[in-house]
Amino acid sequence: MDDNDDLAELDTAALDVLRELGLLSTEDWANAMSDRGFGHRRDMYELVDTVDSVDLAFLPDMRNIAVDVLLDGRVLTHRLTQREVASDIIVAIDDLSPITTLLQFAEDPAGLRATYRGVGDDEIFASLGIDDPFWPHSEALVLPQGTLSDYEQGDLVSLVVVGGVVRIRAVDGPLEQIDVSAAVREIVPEDTTVDRDAVVYQLMHDQPDLFTQPCPPLSEIFAGAGIEQSEDLVARAGFEFDAAMATTRTNMVSNTLKSRRRRGTCTRPVR
């Protein structure tokens, strides 16, 4: 067995420990691994800090959680557009990404696949007749052809996780009306952004019965709570996402230049 096999086994063991113990900080996770005889706490911290798995997720406070366990039995819904119905491709980013994370770049046993434009899978879109390079603009959930043949624009579909398998189901009957406005606003403070999936995972962790029946799409729930979305981030209504992104880019460039100056590698422009 080579080093890569050993590392893969340790990653698997680490995820099993996380599933057993539930929500853990990285330090507590490392300590739990060390207490179980997998290695020194320092080495285990480096290990769990670099675990790369679709089954691993984070809450807003950066504690770790086994998302495959958290999502089992959960249901999220999405309101279809005409383009989605015609193509059997759903734009997942606003409503379904907390679940589609389990499908990243791999086909689910039920035939569902989550992918992105420009990440090696563009032939999938071409094969389905999608020649618009700007659609889907973000995460796409690709369904087996004909899945949405009986749907119309505005209809609701749901994703449900059953035993680790993601399934798409029709939404029949009335939706469960939930009010999580206060909880969402407590998780999302003013004047900052929070990862949207992390917010949903926090809600699920705090309320185990939440999202176990079809309810309105996340985009509608967030809007009702006074929360706006921008790609994978959410913030209180009125937050200037573009300005915040510009500031982040400026700070990154500034920090890079400072680092180069300290190393003596920053060059002056030629006049």
Results as ranks from 00 to 15, higher is better:
242 D>T: 14
218 L>D: 00
134 F>E: 14
254 S>D: 15
264 G>S: 11
256 T>A: 15
107 E>A: 14
58 F>T: 12
243 A>T: 03
141 L>Y: 03
61 D>E: 06
56 L>S: 05
34 S>K: 02
156 L>E: 11
146 G>Y: 11
159 L>Q: 04
32 A>T: 08
216 P>W: 02
73 G>N: 08
169 R>V: 11
80 L>W: 09
246 A>E: 15
232 D>P: 00
149 S>R: 15
135 W>K: 10
230 S>N: 12
153 Q>V: 13
228 E>V: 14
42 R>D: 15
265 T>N: 06
160 V>W: 10
185 R>E: 00
75 V>A: 05
202 Q>L: 08
172 D>Y: 13
87 S>G: 03
180 V>K: 00
161 V>T: 04
77 T>Y: 15
115 T>D: 08
170 A>R: 13
115 T>Y: 04
77 T>P: 04
228 E>L: 14
57 A>K: 08
17 V>C: 07
58 F>P: 00
204 M>W: 00
243 A>N: 03
51 V>I: 14
40 H>A: 10
95 D>R: 00
239 F>Y: 05
33 M>W: 12
99 I>F: 01
146 G>I: 06
156 L>I: 14
25 S>D: 09
24 L>H: 05
251 N>C: 03
11 D>Q: 13
224 G>D: 07
3 D>R: 04
141 L>N: 02
210 L>P: 11
204 M>E: 09
224 G>I: 09
128 L>P: 09
199 V>L: 01
39 G>I: 12
72 D>P: 02
218 L>E: 04
213 Q>H: 11
144 P>H: 11
166 V>C: 01
122 D>T: 03
19 R>D: 07
87 S>C: 14
20 E>N: 11
230 S>Q: 10
170 A>G: 15
22 G>F: 01
27 E>V: 09
28 D>L: 02
237 A>E: 07
151 Y>P: 01
223 A>G: 07
104 Q>D: 13
191 D>C: 04
249 R>C: 04
92 A>E: 05
223 A>K: 04
22 G>S: 11
9 E>I: 02
60 P>S: 10
131 D>T: 15
108 D>Q: 03
79 R>H: 06
33 M>D: 02
186 E>C: 06
217 P>D: 09
218 L>W: 07
31 N>P: 01
264 G>V: 08
259 S>D: 07
51 V>W: 10
62 M>I: 03
100 T>D: 05
74 R>H: 01
268 R>N: 09
246 A>G: 12
256 T>K: 11
248 T>N: 09
79 R>T: 12
258 K>F: 09
114 A>M: 13
3 D>H: 04
235 A>H: 02
259 S>R: 05
150 D>H: 14
130 I>T: 15
84 E>N: 05
82 Q>C: 08
238 G>F: 00
31 N>W: 10
73 G>W: 02
57 A>I: 10
13 A>V: 12
223 A>I: 08
68 D>V: 12
198 A>P: 03
268 R>L: 14
264 G>M: 09
178 I>L: 10
188 V>T: 07
135 W>N: 13
183 A>W: 00
